[in-house]
């Protein structure tokens, strides 16, 4: 019995080796890339779609001259590491890593190879050990950061709420992205006459409690791209609605779901920018080890008129033309 299992396993391995060997280098008519996404998450999915769109614009079209191997690690670092090793075994031409843990494991797995890694949705590449303080890569790895446009967001809140004093932020204490963004908010808030009130949570179940307490103390809430809090966004909106205070988002999905407005990232755009970087690397025009990581310089304004109306808020008139996208209803998916 044991022997049979062993034989079967060996056969499978031999077969897969043969298949792989057979489709080896074919003069690069078809490029193979591996996408390692850390978790299932609206923003990250948008990132991936943008990435493929960016590649397509540069002439790398999935199904034509591009083969895409996509694995989602379901927020498990062990699976994420194995995903990267799997890509290394398959000798892909490039690995696209979405979100910080995926980028870190991909870099770790490719250290001894010449496979380039292009990451996206990494808030702080320096903190994650993927880039030097001057923005240059630490190895054959580069990409885009989704650091929030804190100043633009504060300025927007000031425009909408001229009398507000305190902004509340709920964040997860284990998410390094959130901690660094909170620090950035605390540093910049004074310039706009705001005071930041923070509450840290450790799990999803604490978010509603934190929100219920928070709404009593602040004039408005602003969201980060904090995975846990974003997942529980509806409970935050509910508590804020009861207290009649607005919640500002950090990207389009949150505004769609009922935040009043955001000066935020368009993850699809971020992914597209990343896709173009990947295209340069694939074409051999640039090396990932020599490209500095990029950020989105122009944040986009999103507004939700339905959410504003619910609170009796009047939005600046010019938003009608300035907004990258505006919503007339609250869409909860």
């Amino acid at each position: 019995m044991k022997k049979k299992i062993l034989t079967a396993m060996m056969t499978i391995m031999a077969m897969s080796a043969a298949i792989l060997g057979g489709c080896g280098d074919s003069g690069k008519d078809v490029y193979t890339i591996g996408i390692s996404q850390f978790a299932v998450h609206g923003s990250l999915d948008n990132c991936r779609e943008g990435f493929l769109a960016g590649l397509a614009e540069e002439g790398f079209v999935e199904g034509e001259n591009l083969k895409v191997d996509y694995v989602n690690a379901q927020a498990d670092t062990g699976t994420s590491a194995m995903t990267a090793d799997n890509f290394v075994t398959k000798k892909v031409d490039l690995i696209c890593a979405i979100a910080t843990p995926a980028a870190m494991t991909a870099y770790n797995s490719t250290m001894d190879t010449d496979i380039p890694v292009i990451y996206t949705a990494v808030s702080d590449p320096v903190e994650a050990g993927l880039a030097n303080a001057d923005g240059t890569p630490v190895g054959n790895i580069t990409g885009t950061s989704d650091a929030l446009a804190v100043d633009a967001q504060l300025q927007m809140i000031r425009e909408i709420l001229p009398d507000a004093k305190k902004i509340g932020i709920i964040y997860t204490t284990s998410e390094a992205n959130s901690i660094s963004t909170v620090a950035a908010y605390e540093e910049a808030a004074g310039n706009y006459g705001f005071e930041i009130v923070t509450t840290g949570v450790t799990s999803l179940s604490e978010v509603p409690l934190a929100a219920a307490d928070m709404v009593k103390k602040v004039d408005c809430i602003t969201n980060l791209t904090d995975n846990t809090v974003v997942t529980a966004l509806q409970s935050v909106l509910e508590e804020a609605g009861k207290a009649n205070i607005p919640v500002f988002g950090s990207e389009v999905e949150q505004v769609k779901a009922g935040c009043v407005a955001s000066m935020g990232l368009e993850y699809f755009e971020l992914g597209r920018q990343t896709g173009k970087m990947a295209a340069m690397v694939l074409r051999g025009e640039a090396k990932a080890s020599e490209m500095e990581y990029e950020i989105i310089t122009e944040p986009s304004l999103y507004v939700n008129y339905a959410a504003a109306e619910k609170l009796g808020l009047e939005l600046p008139r010019r938003y009608a033309t300035d907004a990258y996208q505006s919503f007339e209803e609250i869409i909860v998916e």
């Binding site: 870190m104 050990g129 993927l130 630490v138 998410e175 390094a176 901690i179």
Partner: peptide, 9 residues
């Protein structure tokens, strides 16, 4: 000290 720490080098 943080939710993630890298010791790559």
């Amino acid at each position: 000290g943080a939710g993630y720490v890298a010791i790559f080098n």
